[in-house]
Nucleic acid binder design. Structure first.
Lengths: 129, 129
DNA sequence: ATGAACCTTCCAGTACAGTGGAAGGTCAAG
DNA sequence: CTTGACCTTCCACTGTACTGGAAGGTTCAT
């Protein structure tokens, strides 16, 4: 399978696939006599895994770690469990932070809807913020 | 006031202040005979505004817009109101997205805590993701 | 034989908000 | 007079996940 076909099969671009190879997410593909990359069918599964990992909020660096462990013949299970747990804690923190920010902004916005521009003093930039 | 003193007074760094000037967030400071920047006292307030704007989740580009309007002698009130409203909508969308992602990951994590590594097939990278 | 569609490498750029470091100028204290 | 703290400019780099484009090679159909 050539790179364009693989890109189409996995819903991505040839640019991205070359970028993944360069980033160590894909093992360098075999080459045809022409120099074209020639992918085995299992590449589709590997790229699917990358996409699912991304959808689960893992970074490419984390996905690369998992793939490396798999390549060393080990099962990356406990590592994946840890990564997911970590990601869960991060998400909770992030959501809490955004919720606080949302309340702050909602307050500012409510003030901005109420106060009249005339009450702005010259010395400050904007009394709403 | 020299740049180091202003940095200390506002809880930032000289690097950042020069970066703000270059980015058009601060009007270029007066210079002493030595070439050193010499800030007026109101610079503290302006940098405070930048920080409050950031704390409200505005980007430097948005803060710059507000400051430009103020510099043109206009009151940026309605613009600020719009920016805050927009930011509020963005935040709501972002929080909803993260909440969905959180549930997906919580599910994966629960599976990962339950299933045994032996059930991993060789053909897939990781049955948890 | 020629044009389209595909592939190759390499270099550079995107957005965001800074940070790091080199090479050199200025000022006050000892 | 020199040391140290401070300042100047300029250039490059951080991290994330790609994207764009140039210059050139390959394959296949017409």
């Amino acid at each position: 399978m050539r790179i364009g076909q693989l890109a189409e099969a996995t819903g991505t671009t040839t640019k991205t696939l070359r970028f993944y190879e360069e980033s160590g997410l894909l093992t360098p593909a075999e080459r045809l006599a022409s120099g074209y990359r020639d992918y085995a069918d299992d590449a589709v599964g590997r790229i699917g895994f990358i996409h699912r990992g991304q959808a689960a909020g893992l970074t490419l660096a984390q996905i690369r770690q998992i793939l490396k462990i798999r390549e060393h013949g080990q099962t990356p299970c406990s590592h994946v469990r840890d990564l997911l747990g970590e990601r869960l804690r991060e998400l909770d923190a992030q959501i809490a932070e955004l919720a606080t920010l949302r309340e702050t902004i909602a307050q500012l916005h409510a003030n901005a809807a109420e106060l009249e521009p005339e009450t702005c003093s010259v010395g400050e930039v904007c009394r709403y913020v």
